[in-house]
Design a protein around this nucleic acid. Structure first.
Lengths: 127, 127
DNA sequence: GAAACTGGTTTCCTCGATGAAACTATCTCA
DNA sequence: TGAGATAGTTTCATCGAGGAAACCAGTTTC
């Protein structure tokens, strides 16, 4: 095994019995949940900008269609990453907020975002 | 703006002029590149297990079809995340390896993997 | 009474992602 | 001479992601 892979496994606090297979499965599982164009943006919005109502999300997550937003929110709720609350206001409003479990994704999202921002700058200033 | 978002922007070393918009675009750009079921697995394999030949990748990235692998490798090469080298052996072999630029994705991949592994354990031991 | 806002659902459609399997071409070894 | 390994490409088919727009139901305002 590559020294680097050992280091990585260590970083992941994965016992050596588990190793590669569990890492691969881990990536797969994570991708199943955060897959697609929208989920990370939705989670990021709720996690870093606080709770939002449906229409607010529709406006803030640029370009998403109502159907997609609705579907993605349902999936995120099933996976316990966000919480949906119907408020007894008139007209009724619905609030979506990140759960403590959803917050555990912060680190990963921040790393993706940091890389993306750097990448975008790299591309813009080359050529 | 939420205090958390300020913190985040700080963490991203993004100047305050850029803020939200650049963060959103960053996530989008990152997703464009690492999107799909396979790219992170391929990059991870090359980054943590060292250079591989086509057939080795076909065997190690479980479940991928030759056509997909071929296509994904081309895209990753275009984005300068991996390097393709034709070796003058008989029969000719082709080596794929991660580039220094590709290595900059390590942190993000590790965070995704760590989350995925934890998530997998959470799911397995609940119920 | 009509329009506008809330939070969705439903229907219809298209296009691209992905898979399976066959095919190409070169080289080696038995 | 032909099987098997190298690294793909090509063809055909399917299925689901995602978008556009209409619709629904309740409330409130004009």
């Amino acid at each position: 095994m590559e020294p680097l892979e050992k280091e990585l496994i260590n970083a992941c606090k994965i016992d050596y019995q588990a190793e590669r297979n569990e890492m691969t499965l881990g990536i797969r599982d994570a991708l199943d949940i955060i897959d697609g164009k929208w989920k990370i943006l939705i989670i990021g919005t709720l996690s870093f900008r606080g709770k939002k109502r449906f229409m607010e999300l529709l406006r803030e997550v640029d370009g998403i269609a109502a159907k997609m937003l609705s579907k993605e929110l349902q999936e995120l709720e099933i996976n316990k990453l966000i919480k949906r609350t119907v408020c007894d206001t008139k007209p009724i409003t619905v609030e979506y907020e990140i759960t403590p479990y959803g917050k555990t994704l912060d680190k990963a999202i921040i790393e993706i975002m940091k890389w993306g921002v750097e990448h975008r700058r790299t591309i813009m200033y080359q050529d």
